[in-house]
């Protein structure tokens, strides 16, 4: 009897779980929050257990950062010297020294007590476009986020059962997919049901639809020329900058996956040896397999 009551209760709660879904499609014409579509899943060279960064892609992405994004977005947790470290862009130390000197960094105080500007050195961090958040807000009414870990700071709802399958397929590139989609998702006019305040741009993939970031003209007018001759397009730019930002967030990715493989092989071998040792030891115990 108790069992039946409980089954009913459980069934009820299961229904309760499945039934609600925020924002049904039936509310046409009503003011409801814009639901951004999930970003399309792209193929990344660094995905999967044997993933590696594509150095040419990282260099292209860095070029976009340098010529377009760095005007508003900092990369303050990276140093120029990171560009020549293994598992990254593949620049030489000499190239990094040259590249660093193209940047101006603030240093000081000098012997007169003043801060001064000088050419960048490999050990310097990437300079931020604004000295602090307040300066950014005063200029743009919003604070453009720093890019150092942004590829790990962005994701999207995967829902059941995908979030379980992601654990088996090792899908960790939600951030990169979102960033690539976001960058190519600027549209001049929002859909009719979406009303945005002035100064807010519509982006197809932004949750809620509105972003304070203006449409990046250099991206959409294809103003960045790639050094390796790769044809320019919004999709290409988006992919390359997303890959670069993934490296920026996880510069140790290649080492992590490489060591991971060695560790997994070692553990599987050791587990096998321990299993057979266990069986041998326990065979002495009468009546136990």
């Amino acid at each position: 009897m108790l069992r039946h009551i409980l089954t009913a209760v459980l069934a009820g709660s299961l229904i309760g779980l499945i039934a609600p879904h925020p924002v049904a499609a039936q509310d046409e014409g009503k003011e409801h929050p814009y639901e951004a579509p999930p970003p399309p899943r792209l193929t990344w060279s660094f995905a999967g257990p044997f993933g590696k960064f594509d150095q040419a892609q990282l260099q292209r992405g860095f070029k976009i950062y340098k010529e377009v994004c760095s005007l508003c977005h900092g990369l303050s947790m990276l140093s120029f010297r990171n560009l020549s470290q293994p598992g990254g862009l593949g620049y030489t130390d000499a190239q990094v020294k040259q590249l660093a000197s193209e940047f101006t960094v603030r240093d000081g105080p000098n012997d007169q007590g003043e801060m001064f500007d000088r050419k960048g050195r490999p050990a310097d961090r990437f300079p931020s476009p604004f000295p602090n958040d307040n300066a950014a807000r005063a200029r743009y009414n919003a604070v453009p986020p720093d890019f150092s870990v942004i590829a790990k700071a962005r994701t999207y709802e995967r829902g059941f059962p995908w979030f379980i399958l992601d654990g088996l397929t090792q899908y960790q590139e939600q951030g990169a997919d979102y960033i690539a989609a976001y960058l190519s998702g600027f549209e001049d006019k929002p859909p009719p049901s979406v009303h945005l305040p002035s100064g807010v741009q519509f982006n197809k993939y932004m949750p809620g639809g509105g972003t304070s970031m203006p449409k990046p003209v250099q991206i959409y007018d294809k103003l960045v020329q790639y050094d390796d001759g790769t044809p320019a397009s919004v999709e290409q730019y988006s992919k390359d900058i997303a890959a670069f930002l993934m490296w920026a967030a996880e510069p140790q990715l290649e080492a992590r996956k490489r060591i991971g493989f060695q560790v997994m092989v070692f553990l599987i071998v050791l587990a096998g040896l321990l299993y057979f040792t266990k069986r041998k030891v326990w065979s002495k115990v009468h009546g136990h397999a």
């Binding site: 070692f266 071998v269 050791l270 040896l273 321990l274 057979f276 040792t277 041998k280």
Partner: peptide
């Protein structure tokens, strides 16, 4: 088997 297991474990 014991020696192999022990050695791998030590490594």
């Amino acid at each position: 088997l014991y020696i192999a297991t022990g050695a791998v474990g030590l490594v």
